[in-house]
Amino acid sequence: MARRRKGQAVSGWINLDKGYDLGSTTAVTRVRRLFDAQKAGHAGTLDPLATGVLPIALGEATKTVPFLMDADKSYRFTIAWGRTTATYDREGETLATSDVRPGPDAVAALLPRFIGEIDQIPPAYSAIKVDGERAYDLARAGETVELAARKVVIHAARLAEAPDADHVTLEIDCGKGTYVRALVRDLAEGLGACGHVSALRRTRVGRFHEADGVTLDMLEEMGYEARRSEALLPVETALDDIPVLAVTDEDAFRLKQGRSVVLVPRQVEMVRAGLKPGSRTVSAMAGGMMVALCEMRAGRLEPSRVFHL
């Protein structure tokens, strides 16, 4: 006899505004407990020293996490001039110091060099695995970590403010895998200065924006299940760039059984018009509820992930 899963069958997304000095895994655990959810996960780790948008998936929404991991993101961060650290943030050991204080005009003039597809070497203190070990574990153990450059995309970069000679705040919109700390390292080097990240905030992940976020304190203050459910976003929130196709109840039943369904020519053309280049993924909906994520092949929908909502 199968063991009954502990917790409630709660499904959806929480747009968590993560606080400072809180690990992503700890944040997920606290949200799961608040909702008494059977399972939970997050879409992209946010360092404990960073704040902002940390989308947390509950229940069936965990099946859509891979799609949000690939989503574009936005960050707002402050560079403190004068000190380069091992981690490129304010917690790291000081490696070098400098009296150079680049002005806002100099920073703005250099930014275009980093817009578009660029090669970026991730920081040694990162979660990337090297021979099965996390790079940051090796770095903390005193080992020399050399990571290969990776292709990343920065769509836009802008100067937000320069409150004083020691600090400048920037905003970027970027693709997955972009390291803000590596960008700050490269900016400082390009300006002949020392610098590190003194504050970092993620302001957007796909359709999840900071303006709509909820904090752990807010969720706790809601007090009871009915009120907390107001913060729960639909499972399909993570699928903003995937075309949606409404199917009949009969077709929904077939898809949930893992069987394919045949589309009429009008449906095929509708889906093709919304597909991204190289993608076949379609979201099947019935009665306003997610039924399945499917692949469209030869005029048929073949279910790849089925949802039980």
Score class of each variant (00 low, 15 high):
189 E>Q: 13
118 I>A: 00
74 S>Q: 13
90 R>Q: 10
100 V>D: 06
103 G>C: 11
121 I>R: 11
260 S>A: 14
198 S>W: 02
62 T>K: 00
148 A>S: 14
186 D>E: 14
226 A>T: 02
298 A>N: 15
291 V>K: 01
281 T>A: 15
171 E>S: 09
128 I>F: 09
82 G>A: 04
261 V>S: 03
1 M>P: 15
209 H>C: 15
222 M>I: 10
169 T>V: 13
206 G>P: 04
100 V>L: 12
267 Q>M: 13
299 G>V: 15
296 M>H: 07
301 L>D: 08
234 P>N: 00
25 T>D: 09
34 L>C: 11
146 E>I: 12
151 K>A: 14
3 R>Q: 14
98 S>P: 13
267 Q>L: 10
44 G>F: 03
56 I>P: 03
127 A>V: 12
6 K>G: 07
161 E>G: 02
217 D>S: 14
245 L>S: 06
227 R>N: 01
245 L>T: 03
275 L>A: 07
269 E>P: 07
92 G>A: 01
246 A>S: 10
185 R>N: 13
68 L>R: 05
60 E>N: 05
278 G>I: 07
37 A>G: 08
73 K>Y: 13
66 P>I: 10
43 A>V: 11
124 A>N: 05
172 I>Q: 09
223 G>R: 06
171 E>Q: 09
276 K>I: 06
